[in-house]
Amino acid sequence: MAHATSSAGLPALELGQAPGRIDPVLLLAGLAWAGAAALTLLWPNATDDWAFTEELAYLAAAAAAVLALAGLLPRAPGLARLRRAGPWFLVLGIGLAVWEIATAKLDLLPRPFFAPPQELLTVYIDDWPRLVECVLASLGLLVTGYLLGAVTGFVTGLGLGWSRLVGYWVHPVLRLIGPLPPVAWLPVAFFTFPSSWAASVFLIALATFVPVTILTWSGVASVNSAYYDIARTLGAKNRFLVLKVAVPAAMPHVYVGLFMGMAASFAVLVVAEMMGVKAGLGWYLQWALGWAAYGNMYAALLITALMCSSLVTLLFKVRDRHLAWQKGMLKW
């Protein structure tokens, strides 16, 4: 009998180990969100009766329920990432409560510049078709310009690193226009191109082109010359040296250029949309500002941030896959 109990006690002991225990941080986070939900619902708004106040409270309550459940059921599959983000959920819950109190409940911040959280919710619920349209317009513009700039930049950089003739003609041009912020071309671009869309594609492409060109070039220029010697003694011709030696060896540099180009393209996208294009997130921001619709502005700003950060994450994923051979080497 004693034998049976001791063997039965073993799994129970395992259950008590770290991964099986109730997660106090997630529970606390759930509590914070529940608190935010309660004060949103029960504490009357200071001045206006903000629309969607109740709905915001229910959403916060739902989040609280999910977090608390995850805290109580730590064995459920797929919760490892949630648990790692526990402290963040806690801080975000507290942040939501503070934001709600400072705006809707106590009116501490000057209006209309600071919108309460339910105002953002209102925008997303009422204006989502237009926001989706703007995201698609921005993405279309950005992707077209970025790909155009990245491809031409890559080819130009390769030419600069490889051919003396290309270097002779392109290098001075690059020296001259490279340091110029692409936005400086804005007025010229808008009256040179047939449409403001085409002008914006050109500007985004230019913003991407310069860093991609320079980094591809420096990547090709810094290839270990012994790599070429090896390939040449093994019978490689020029085409092979470019495509199978120079390009793969330069790829880590090229990706640095692609990241820099992406950051530059975001800047140009927003400015171009604010100045001339009649669609997109930049245009939405400008339009919201014009109508003093600050809630709309914050809502669009949040979406813009999410879009840009998703694109950067995507590029990181592509890079890590493509440069998997670098594993174990220093990566920035």
Partner: peptide, 10 residues
């Protein structure tokens, strides 16, 4: 050569 100079990406 003295250094193996294998291509690290292959």
């Amino acid at each position: 050569f003295q250094d193996p100079t294998l291509y690290p990406w292959r």
